[in-house]
């Protein structure tokens, strides 16, 4: 036993992780470290790359540790709604295909994808990132529809944070052709040469946390940690760190641990870091 070689040790550790995920994580946390070597409140490294999809009007690729999300923005012209003649549309969507994780099966969008898409929509509306009025070409006749489609390439937890960042980066990357309305012909023509960026106001940045065993607060949980958490906390702030939304879901039993205030402080310092990367786009 004592003289066993390193590969078999690794296999045994992997087996133990599969069979007793909770104990596996507990053993690590007892030593004050997480399975991937991070501190409890440390986020994974993040990289943002924009403009890699040339056929889209704006695109981005975000990596948060191993979690990878690609986002493309496609602009189309449509007729505005009758009750909102001056508003265009912003339609965010996230696709979790079987490519990213065996958790997801081919077919109609999974519950997770629908839930995350709905939360992304809420976050974008809440931060007022893009006024739908600015997408109007001719009131009551023509307006831009922006389809913000994100696809997860590699699922390793915290897809919400990664996708929101990818959507923000892609929207910042959008260059819309200049559209002019001709009254005589009732047509819209788009310029081939002049392309303009969107007028974005505030940028939402989200930070997610989880509570394990009512004791440990973990930032930016991985796919392995996510199902073991009893409480999840998501804090959304704007670029200046002002709070827009807090959401804490699940029961935690120790009243000594003031989870929410701790999460908010960490989220605000994280926003400052991420904003440096976002502004560099």
């Amino acid at each position: 036993m004592a003289a066993s070689s390193t590969p078999s040790e690794a296999i045994r550790a992997a087996t133990f992780q599969r069979l007793h995920p909770k104990t596996y994580l507990e053993r690590f946390l007892e030593e004050n470290v997480r399975p991937d070597g991070r501190d409890f409140l440390e986020f994974r490294d993040c990289s943002i790359n924009v403009g890699s999809i040339s056929t889209a009007d704006g695109s981005s690729l975000v990596r948060l540790g191993d979690t990878t999300v690609v986002c493309g923005v496609k602009a189309e012209i449509a007729e505005p709604d009758l009750d909102a003649p001056e508003d265009g549309f912003l339609v965010p969507n996230l696709d979790l295909s079987p490519l990213c994780s065996p958790k997801y099966k081919p077919g109609p969008p999974s519950d997770d994808a629908q839930v995350i898409s709905s939360r992304l929509n809420e976050a974008l509306i809440l931060s007022d990132i893009l006024s739908t009025k600015s997408l109007c070409i001719q009131p009551g006749k023509f307006a831009w529809v922006l389809y913000v489609d994100a696809t997860c390439i590699n699922y390793n937890g915290n897809v919400f944070d990664a996708t929101l960042l990818a959507m923000v980066a892609a929207l910042k990357n959008v260059r819309l052709p200049k559209a002019t309305y001709h009254e005589e012909t009732n047509h819209v023509t788009c310029s081939r040469k002049i392309r303009e960026p969107l007028s974005l106001s505030e940028v939402p940045i989200s930070s997610s946390f989880g509570v394990f065993d009512s004791l440990h607060l973990l930032a930016d949980p991985t796919a392995f940690e996510e199902p073991l958490l009893e409480t999840t906390v998501t804090v959304i702030t704007d670029s200046k760190g002002r709070l827009l939304s807090t959401n804490q879901l699940g029961q935690y039993l120790s009243p000594q641990l003031d989870v929410l205030s701790k999460c908010i402080t960490n989220a605000q310092s994280r926003t400052t870091e991420i904003m440096q990367q976002v502004l560099a786009i």
Binding site: E122, I125, L126, S127, D128, I236, D238, R242, L243, L244, S245, T246, N247, Q248, L249, G250, Q251, Y252, L260
Partner: peptide, 11 residues
């Protein structure tokens, strides 16, 4: 507590 959700577009 099992759920707390608070949001505002004005901060």
């Amino acid at each position: 507590e099992v759920w707390s959700n608070w949001q505002s577009s004005l901060g």
